[in-house]
């Protein structure tokens, strides 16, 4: 896992709602703090990345939002325009409108065409070496296979034409585990874990992209060590609760009962999560590192949250 940040291109995926964008932002922040120049790209621009970095809206042109961190959001039409300009020398901003519209149509019909514009743009940034690391806040688990398999698919479907000759270099980048990897995010809940485990099983075979690591996000802290848990249980005996309530200056028995009930709730939530966490660990290959990021009881968006999680990630990765 130590070399997670040493790769060139990381795709961060997971079930919807698990914090993909947060994890991408955190990886970007940590890599930049360690001296790298990082591009973080939101492929489904909802503005979450801007909220995390507390910057203005992100666009297709990367902006430095924090020292060493450049943020952008994907726009397939802009990507097409750039592609045409760079590769086919098709000029004219004026004519791109109808062309893009027509292209949009074919892209809707033809599997992988839209995806290749996204993946192609990202691979292009890697090839040009403008950045040390490109972190992609990628599609959720349901769509990521199609996205990453797009170059393979296009290669098979399109026998001739510029695209075919253009896909090989992308495949070279994507299939090199030293350069490219997927970071799979899951929260300790049933469905996110199930989707992560399923994707981990299919990723290599269907896309040729390696699984670089798994992030368990929003993991609640362990409340008690084993001996402490026994003490907590003993405390719940009515006589002991009464003793403790008697020793309190405040609140009395009702207040204490509420606090103990809250602690039992916290324990229960934590235990439920721990079971799912074990399923996650057991469901991915032992050589794939599992990194744990804590649940934030405070605000979960904004720079402060990102920095807090970046510190936690640094600890997990080691120096």
């Amino acid at each position: 896992m130590i070399d997670l940040l040493a790769r060139d291109l990381l795709f961060v995926t997971g079930k919807g709602g698990v914090g993909k964008t947060t994890v991408a932002a955190v990886i970007g922040m940590l890599a930049a703090e360690r001296g790298q120049k990082v591009l973080v790209c939101e492929t489904d621009p909802k503005g979450d990345l801007a909220a995390l970095y507390e910057c203005g809206p992100t666009g297709f042109t990367p902006l430095e939002v924090s020292p060493g961190v450049f943020a952008m959001s994907m726009d397939t039409e802009a990507s097409l325009r750039e592609y045409l300009k760079l590769n086919l020398r098709v000029p004219t901003v004026g004519r791109i409108g109808p062309v893009a519209k027509a292209f949009d149509f074919v892209a809707t019909a033809a599997p992988g065409v839209r995806e290749i514009l996204t993946v192609g743009k990202l691979c292009y940034e890697v090839r040009e070496r403008t950045y040390d690391l490109v972190v992609v806040d990628a599609s959720p688990t349901g769509h990521i296979l199609g996205e990453l398999a797009a170059p393979v698919g296009i290669n098979e479907l399109v026998r001739v034409g510029a695209v075919r000759s253009q896909t090989q270099w992308m495949l070279d980048i994507l299939s090199d585990p030293a350069r490219t990897g997927v970071v799979l995010v899951a929260t300790p809940e049933e469905m996110p874990v199930r989707e992560a485990v399923e994707l981990a099983g299919r990723l290599g075979a269907e896309t040729g992209v390696a699984l670089a690591g798994v992030v368990a996000n929003r993991v609640l802290p362990e409340l008690f060590a084993r001996s402490e848990e026994a003490a907590f249980e003993a405390l719940s005996a009515p006589a002991r609760t009464r003793d403790l309530a008697g020793a309190l200056d405040s609140g009395g028995r009702d207040g204490l009962a509420g606090v103990l009930e809250a602690a039992r709730l916290a324990l229960r939530i934590r235990r439920g999560g721990a079971a799912h966490l074990r399923t996650l660990r057991d469901g991915i290959a032992p050589e794939v590192p599992l990194v744990i990021l804590p649940y934030l009881f405070g605000r979960s968006t904004g720079r402060r949250a990102v920095r807090q999680l970046a510190e936690a990630l640094a600890e997990e990765l080691g120096e």
Binding site: L84, L88, V90, R95, P98, V99, A102, F103, V106, A109, A110, V113, L157, V158, R159, V160, G161, A162, V163, R164
Partner: peptide
């Protein structure tokens, strides 16, 4: 037509024909 020129260069005629037949 510019679309055809571009599409042909990007995707190749054969692929467009396949798509057309399907639709």
């Amino acid at each position: 037509r510019p679309f055809y020129q571009v599409a042909d260069r990007i995707l190749g005629t054969q692929f467009l024909e396949d798509v057309a037949e399907f639709f």
